[in-house]
Design a protein around this nucleic acid. Structure first.
Length: 487
RNA sequence: GCGGCCGUAGCUCAGUGGUAGAGCUCUACCUUGCCAAGGUAGAUGUCGUGGGUUCAAAUCCCAUCGGCCGCUCCA
């Protein structure tokens, strides 16, 4: 009789809109698919994600510095990096099953099939054919037909043409839209770091190993965006390129995987829903010698939050070749130039914020008693402390405002004067505010207030003039509630 | 692009041809004394859009726009 309860993601999407975390973009014009605007609470959440990342990678250490490079660089940058030629997918559709495939993946699957059957020579020949066909749509399609590759779903070879789909957004720079003015929106922030390698070394006198961090927007014309803000065409990246001696790269690779995994755990994400997944050799991008993903178990399955890759010296060497400027580091001890290897932890800011939302979401009780609570880490919560007068009289509102003013320099605060105290507590629970302070009759007498904690709903009397210290102490001591929320 | 689902109030949705609704939310006032309290009054809609059928369309027909999910890919 009753409908199935809305799925977790639906509830979160609805809460996000209702309370101002995330709005569908261009809504009054009918919307823009898979595009979202971050609202007043969402922007605070994202800001805290970025602050936590920057704090951990830049402020908490002496071997990483930051930069903020341009979104629109010379098109030469993307030719050198391989994005103009390689950052595109050859797609082919099966007309019978209406399924779409990566044309090269179909051929690769065949190569693999030959190899598993022990037909190594056939496998090798086909691999070579594939290598020459890459970038040539006609040849790729012919290869599929020649090999008799059929659609796994329909079992037919009724294929469409192969079409190339470049994932970079193009734009035009300058007044005249001719081919000379073509430019690209960056598909990753990393290249802005590589091309500034010499500048940073000279300016900071950094010695290997050291890293350069950057947070900023990137753009990819994804064929399949979706899952709320998980995959969007415009997104914010948090990337760090860590430069080291080639022989030290494996060690740093392990180190950064461990560091980055722990970052999520330290910010309260359920360790049972986090894992590291090492890429198989055939999954690796053209520039990578190894890559491990931090994955989170979303309602729609395990998905990547962050990739930690060993990019080797690929990028610095390519830019050295293509620009004619040597991007290398002079090792004075051994009196030689070294092209460093690069370990890159690359995280998605929006999907990390979404992880915190999903992971923090909890419901307690049933029906009218139901409590929806976002159990954010206090350092992540958009509002740290809310201040209420117990009732709207006897000078309590004024006293509450006074206390709020005293706290707002050190914490993100909110003040609510209307509605019953219980309702105000629940509203703050729903946006994940970890602490609420209530001014009552006793406050006016003895100067103490009620400090209420979100997770346990427990209350304590605290002198109002010691609130800041009490809050700091509780933020520091915060631990993910046990047992872990089960939704 | 293909397939599935879907567009009615800020949110969640009901409404199968006869005056656009409910719950929550929101606003004002009263009440209030620590966990979604009660009362009174009130606000909110081009029923996605355009056309057609009809005395009459949110509802039937046609077209169109948009959204979500799935298919390739990744941060």
């Amino acid at each position: 009789m009753s409908k199935p309860p809305p799925a977790l993601m639906d509830k979160i999407v609805s809460l996000c809109k209702r309370r101002g975390f995330v709005f569908p973009a261009s809504e009054i014009y009918g919307g823009q698919g898979s595009t979202y605007d971050w609202g007043p609470l969402g922007v605070e959440l994202k800001r805290r994600v970025k602050d936590a990342w920057w704090g951990s990678l830049v402020y908490d250490r002496q071997d990483v510095v930051g930069i903020d490079s341009a979104i629109i660089q010379s098109p030469e940058v993307w030719k050198a990096s391989g994005h103009v030629g390689g950052f595109s997918d050859p797609l082919i559709d099966n007309k019978t099953s209406k399924q779409r495939y990566r044309a090269d993946h179909l051929v690769e699957a065949k190569v693999e099939k030959y190899r598993k059957k022990g037909k190594d020579q056939k496998s090798q020949v086909l691999q070579e054919k594939l290598n020459t066909a890459v970038g040539d749509n006609e040849a790729l399609r012919q290869l599929i037909l020649d090999e008799g590759i059929k659609c796994p779903v329909s079992g037919t070879d009724d294929w469409t043409e192969v079409r190339q789909f470049n994932l970079m957004f193009q734009t035009h720079v300058g007044a005249v839209q001719d081919s000379a003015s073509v430019a690209y929106l960056r598909p990753e922030t990393a290249q802005g770091i590589f091309i500034n390698f010499n500048n940073v070394v000279t300016a900071t006198r950094k010695k290997l190993p050291f890293g350069i961090a950057q947070i900023g927007k990137s753009f990819r014309n994804e064929i399949t965006p979706g899952n709320f803000v998980f995959r969007t065409r415009e997104f914010e990246q948090m990337e760090m390129e860590f430069f080291c001696r080639p022989e030290e790269a494996p060690e740093w690779y392990q180190y950064w995987q461990q560091q980055r995994f722990q970052w999520y755990v330290d910010l309260g994400v359920d360790p049972a829903k986090l894992r590291m997944r090492e890429h198989a050799q055939d999954e690796l991008a053209h520039y990578a010698a190894g890559c491990g993903d931090v994955e989170y178990l979303f309602p729609f399955g395990w998905s990547e939050l962050e990739g930690v890759a060993n990019r080797t010296d690929y990028d610095l060497k390519k830019h050295s070749e293509c620009s004619g400027t040597s991007l290398s580091w002079f090792d004075q001890e051994n009196n030689q130039h070294v092209t460093p290897y690069v370990i890159e932890p690359a995280a998605g800011c929006d999907r990390t914020a979404m992880t915190f939302l999903v992971d923090a979401y909890d419901e307690e009780g049933e029906g009218d008693d139901k409590r929806v609570v976002l159990r954010f880490h206090p350092r992540i919560a958009p509002v740290t402390v809310a201040i209420f007068p117990l009732v709207k009289k006897e000078g309590m509102p004024e006293r509450a405002e006074e206390i709020e003013r005293g706290l707002r320099r050190r914490f993100t605060t909110a003040i609510e004067l209307n509605q019953s105290i219980g309702r105000r507590y629940r509203r703050q629970d729903e946006i994940g505010t970890p602490f609420c302070v209530t001014v009552d009759g006793d406050t006016l007498q003895d100067g103490t207030v009620t400090l209420r904690e979100r997770d346990s709903m427990s209350q304590e009397r605290v002198p109002a003039d010691q609130l800041a210290a009490a809050l700091e102490q509780r933020i520091e001591a915060w631990r993910r509630p046990q047992p872990a929320p089960a939704v």
